[in-house]
């Protein structure tokens, strides 16, 4: 019963929160002005605030959260490990490294598609490496350590670029990418990453049934009819596309992909396949709420969304890790 209501309730909560995003901010707008601006009425300033600033920002927060949430849930299913997540496994860091590289060398000037494609390449390389490692080792700890290694290496290369950055402007730009934010995103920026997000999410949803089979371990999953190689390829491709696109839009935002599936799992009978869609909605919701919090917090400099996400998510990660019994490995 709860499971049937889960997705509709979350969807409703997401829509309400998206509306709240338009209402709240440094200058709160009353409901009737927001509603009339949304439907093309009201004065020009209201329309600008709603359509060019708040709505795209809220939508960006939702899309980034949703893609990270579904990627996290899918990687957890594939690797059979609740601590797998694009941020922890170094996928986001690799994506932002390649993205920053393309910014640094001005490659983005050629086409607006360069940035999302660069981030996706970074994400795919990292996910492919992790899957290769996952085939060789059964140990969850080893895999997380490889992720930590990837993350550190991407971080080191990023620091190297910052070290050699020619001017303060590019330094600020890079820091924005590392911290993660959805401030000042426009519908056109969303438009350039959305196709990749949709494709990645579609691949993950279409191949999710195999994630249930993997509950039994790889050998038995193959025994009941799962094509392991194809499952790995599709999950890695889907998660790589979705994570890469989200990094192209907002930089590296960690831990959302761990927290949301962890909350969802008990409601769907711990079935990885059924956790995908609700995890996407919940992660989108979490990131929208966090972004509203970031905007209305009366601080001198606006907090970065990625910083807030890590402040909430990292302790949750530690807590989930501590819940695990050694018998699980």
């Amino acid at each position: 019963m709860i499971e049937r209501l889960l997705s509709p309730v979350l969807l409703l909560a997401c829509l309400v929160t998206l509306l709240l995003t338009c209402l709240l901010g440094s200058t709160p707008l009353p409901m009737e002005r927001v509603v009339s601006a949304l439907f093309g009425g009201g004065d020009a300033a209201d329309r600008l605030v709603v359509w060019s600033i708040r709505l795209p920002r809220g939508l960006a927060a939702f899309l980034v959260g949703a893609t990270l949430g579904i990627s996290g849930a899918a990687l957890q299913g594939l690797l059979r490990n609740p601590l797998a997540e694009p941020g922890v496994l170094g996928v986001s860091a690799s994506a932002s490294l390649v993205a920053v590289f393309s910014l640094y060398y001005g490659l983005v000037a050629f086409s607006p598609w360069v940035l999302p494609v660069a981030a996706i390449i970074g994400a795919l390389v990292a996910t492919a490496l992790l899957t290769l490692a996952a085939i060789r080792t059964q140990s969850v700890v080893t895999l997380i350590l490889i992720g930590v290694g990837l993350s550190s290496f991407a971080g080191a290369l990023m620091s190297l670029m910052m070290n050699l950055a020619p001017n303060p402007f590019s330094l600020t730009e890079m820091i924005n990418w590392m911290l993660g934010s959805v401030a000042n995103r426009s519908f056109s920026e969303i438009g350039f990453v959305a196709p990749f997000m949709i494709l990645g999410v579609a691949i993950l949803l279409l191949t999710r049934r195999g994630l249930s089979a993997l509950t039994l371990g790889e050998e038995a999953a193959n025994g009941i009819g799962l094509n392991l190689r194809n499952q790995r390829i599709f999950t890695v491709l889907g998660a790589g596309l979705a994570t890469g696109a989200s990094v192209a839009l907002a930089g590296a935002i960690g831990f959302v992909g761990i927290v949301a599936p962890h909350i969802i799992r008990p409601f769907v009978g711990h079935d990885p396949a059924r956790s995908l869609f609700p995890s996407a909605l919940l992660a989108g919701l979490i990131l929208m709420v966090a972004d509203i919090f970031v905007r209305i917090l009366p601080s001198q400099t606006e907090l970065k969304l990625g910083v807030v996400a890590a402040l909430i998510g990292a302790p949750a990660f530690v807590w989930i890790a501590m819940q695990r019994r050694t018998g699980h490995d």
Partner: peptide, 9 residues
């Protein structure tokens, strides 16, 4: 070897 990754029903 019959591991179960999650506490399924």
């Amino acid at each position: 070897i019959r591991p179960l990754a999650w506490p399924n029903r």
